[in-house]
């Protein structure tokens, strides 16, 4: 797929930066002409992925880095990659199970939201090196929907 637009954002692993990250991705996604509901869903998945990096990968150390890469591809497809360089996930399949949670205060819904609101989700992780959460979603433009 051809790249139509691209943005790379690097933030410190601070809770204060979660709202900034999701607002940036939401603003970037708005050029797809998607609905406000869809933008809310995109903001939610970014919030979940970045929160996971802060809480699980870095165990709340605010001095580390998280990279967010947003790419607009042909066919109204948005790709979001959230990467950290933290402790990694030993068993990715287990973490992706519904309601899996190592942190009871967050209900284990993070990956469930990502799976539900994105078309594709891939989690690549290397224990001790970090995790890359890669998500894609295609949107039907409102104009095309009107003619459908």
């Amino acid at each position: 797929m051809n790249v139509r637009n691209y943005c790379k954002l690097e933030i410190m692993s601070l809770p204060e930066n979660i709202s900034f990250a999701r607002a940036c991705v939401g603003a970037f996604a708005s050029q797809l002409g998607c609905t406000l509901d869809e933008i809310d869903e995109i903001k939610l998945v970014v919030s979940e992925a970045v929160s996971n990096s802060i809480i699980h990968a870095y165990q709340n150390r605010g001095t580390e880095l998280i990279t967010i890469v947003i790419t607009l591809l042909d066919g109204q497809t948005l790709e979001i990659i959230v990467e950290d360089y933290g402790k990694g996930i030993e068993d990715v399949a287990r973490v992706l199970q519904p309601s899996y949670s190592s942190e009871p205060s967050r209900m284990g819904l993070g990956f469930s939201f990502m799976k539900s609101f994105m078309d594709e989700l891939e989690v690549i992780s290397q224990p001790g090196e970090g995790t890359s959460v890669q998500m894609r979603r295609s949107f039907v433009s409102k104009d095309k929907e009107a003619y459908a």
Partner: peptide, 13 residues
Amino acid sequence: TFIDSSGLGMILG
């Protein structure tokens, strides 16, 4: 205006 799983976890707690 926005809630994610951290907010939901706070409510459940």
